[in-house]
Design a protein around this nucleic acid. Structure first.
Lengths: 153, 153
DNA sequence: TATTGTTATACTCTATAACTATA
DNA sequence: TATAGTTATAGAGTATAACAATA
């Protein structure tokens, strides 16, 4: 016997039947993520923006801590940070007590760029959201933190 | 004056303040999408599974139609399809009336692989979902089709 | 001439393994 | 010896531009 998610691959069907939530959610999230990536229009990629956003939200972080927050392996973060430093959006500074660690700081230029890029990146989604009903927007407003919690796990 | 989404970068804050929904949603969706990609454990990638899933849902499609559904450019889909054909999960067949077009069919082997992979991919998310409250799950169940609708735009 | 699909090429993201420097 | 970060290397996804075949 197949699993429930083999019988309900699309979100509308999952909503009707009450089965396959995991599958429907995974598909929807992946599609929307890809769609959002298409809408960015700048020098910074979605991955770089995400790292900058984390630095803005949390303040300075070590390379390892940033990698953990972004859920990537350290070498991947090294590469991303190299791009960000080269673009002048992030500064590498020595750790005060541990010579092995590096502390990453968002530069003023980085903060400004982040704000501008985020506006651009969100423009498409914000426009789409305005086309929804108030109830649907409220639904998404309450769902967003739950999605974050799922990702945090 | 900055946009609302510059003041609320994280989902919980957006939920509290009622601002920055687009930004919070974009961040949450991107994080969860990346997290889900980490959880796959198979020969097929998330992109390949998504293409197979679309073929299963819609039946045979031309290369161009599949690219449109997956929201990628035709050359990207060519590459994905090459991998799928090489893996024996998809067959290329000639279009009955138009010699330029190619019709892509999900093979039986592809359907079986898809089912198995989807189970594996969803296992992590399903487990995480069980840790939520029934209200949160219901929230996501209703949010999933809205996310799909946003992506479809 | 327009359309469909592919090939050529390049760039980004990501990972694992190996290496360096420091604790 | 263990840890933090980087470098080296490789594989996948995506895109644009150029090309082939067909309509």
């Amino acid at each position: 016997m197949a699993y429930a998610n083999d019988m309900a691959v699309d979100a509308p069907r999952a909503a009707r039947t009450g089965t396959g939530l995991a599958s429907a959610l995974a598909v929807a999230v992946n599609r929307l993520s890809r769609r959002l990536r298409q809408e960015r229009d700048s020098d910074l990629t979605a991955t770089q923006l995400s790292a900058l956003g984390t630095l803005r939200g949390h303040g300075p972080l070590t390379a390892g801590a940033l990698a953990m927050h972004e859920r990537v392996q350290p070498p991947s973060m090294t590469r991303t940070v190299n791009c960000l430093v080269e673009a002048g959006t992030v500064r590498r500074e020595p750790h005060p007590t541990d010579g092995r660690q590096v502390v990453l700081h968002l530069s003023e230029q980085g903060a400004a760029l982040l704000a501008a890029e985020r506006r651009r990146r969100d423009a498409w989604l914000a426009q789409r959201l305005r086309a929804l009903t108030p109830e649907q927007r409220d639904l998404l407003r309450r769902a967003a933190p739950v999605l974050e919690e799922l990702a945090r796990g």
